[in-house]
Design a protein around this nucleic acid. Structure first.
Lengths: 201, 201
DNA sequence: ACCTGAACACCGTTCAAGT
DNA sequence: ACCTGAACACCGTTCAAGT
């Protein structure tokens, strides 16, 4: 807030004339950034899945450029005009892919959550200087695990940390799209719902 | 930091004897919380998917109790003993479900990311008093959208905001499990990977 | 060796006072 | 009416000084 104000040659208090809080300022920034996301569906030659992947990838890349916005995007659902345009685009692509409308409605939410949390997670890794390198921490922990106590973890030692971030993002995207396209998951058996009831207190 | 120190009847500086930074303290707290997650696989009567759902649901619920830890869990991959036990458990359940080992290795990461970002997102909604109510913001934005400019969004108006948080979480879990179990997505066509290359600068 | 009071360098937000 | 300097109430972290 203070740094931004300084960059604009004014005091921090002046920003409160235009935004009620830091959170709202970031929400506005986020929507502005989403305006930069590539929406390639007009020149529609590639299959819908590829175009959807392009949109999602572009979203993550745009957030990468502004780590502080990326970090807050996990907590703030944007509702500005550019965000609505992105939602419309994703729904249109899922529709083109023959995804049932109920699954598409809940699916876009899942897709946005996936892109957003991916961007947030990686934003910390790169930019924050004092940050612990989680990756190497986790790798080390997995490497030293015993086959007796953790047989699966030990067996999949290498597979767990294999692949580039990009490749894994794309893989997760395929997982989600495959799941969304699957009709069976559109309904959840009633009996499972009770599992998620929050305990009082 | 200062509040925690006060609660322990000491100065904030004393905490730095045990933890190098706030982030490390939270990482330790997170692993401790993960120790509270229910791992029901020993009494194995229910199908593996249901038991996996129980573990995931328990994870989210445990994080709900400590919103500040939940908020940081998106950025910190825990590598403590309890986290490794949770990973082992999830891998064991996926194995029991016949999921190919490569898919399971990447799948657990996706599952943790899903649980974590869900907990983080909802943690802000409930606890932070000054926070904007995103849900109603988004609902209002969607409600006022024009059918001309946003046909899909307009058509799916109700479906987009339908359902309880619990139901949607469970649905997303089914989506991910279905996708992971699907063999086709285990390999990503090489050509798509170039899409995710980060631009220099 | 282990702990900590006090200081340092920051935050976001408010509000009375200025133009 | 619109803007802002200064103050308020916080942070995390460091380090010299204490036991």
């Amino acid at each position: 807030m203070r740094r931004l104000a300084a960059a604009l040659d004014t005091g921090a208090a002046s920003l409160y004339v235009y935004f009620r809080s830091t959170e709202q300022l970031y929400a506005a920034l986020l929507d502005e950034l989403i305006g930069e996301v590539a929406l390639p569906s007009l020149g529609a030659e590639e299959p819908w899945r590829d175009r959807l992947a392009t949109v999602m990838t572009s979203y993550v890349m745009v957030l990468f450029e502004f780590p502080s916005v990326a970090r807050l995007s996990v907590f703030t659902r944007p509702s500005g005009p550019n965000s609505l345009r992105l939602l419309e685009e994703l729904l249109s692509l899922l529709d083109e892919g023959g995804v049932e409308s109920g699954a598409a409605a809940w699916g876009v939410d899942l897709l946005i959550q996936y892109a957003t949390s991916t961007a947030a997670e990686h934003s910390t890794r790169n930019e924050q200087p004092g940050t612990i390198d989680d990756d190497s921490d986790v790798s080390r922990a997995i490497a030293t695990v015993s086959a007796d106590t953790h047989p699966h973890l030990s067996k999949l030692r290498d597979a767990l940390v294999a692949g580039e971030a990009q490749e894994r993002f794309r893989w997760g995207l395929e997982v989600i799209l495959t799941g969304i396209a699957d009709q069976k998951v559109a309904r959840v058996p009633r009996s499972y719902l009770s599992l998620l009831k929050r305990p009082s207190g």
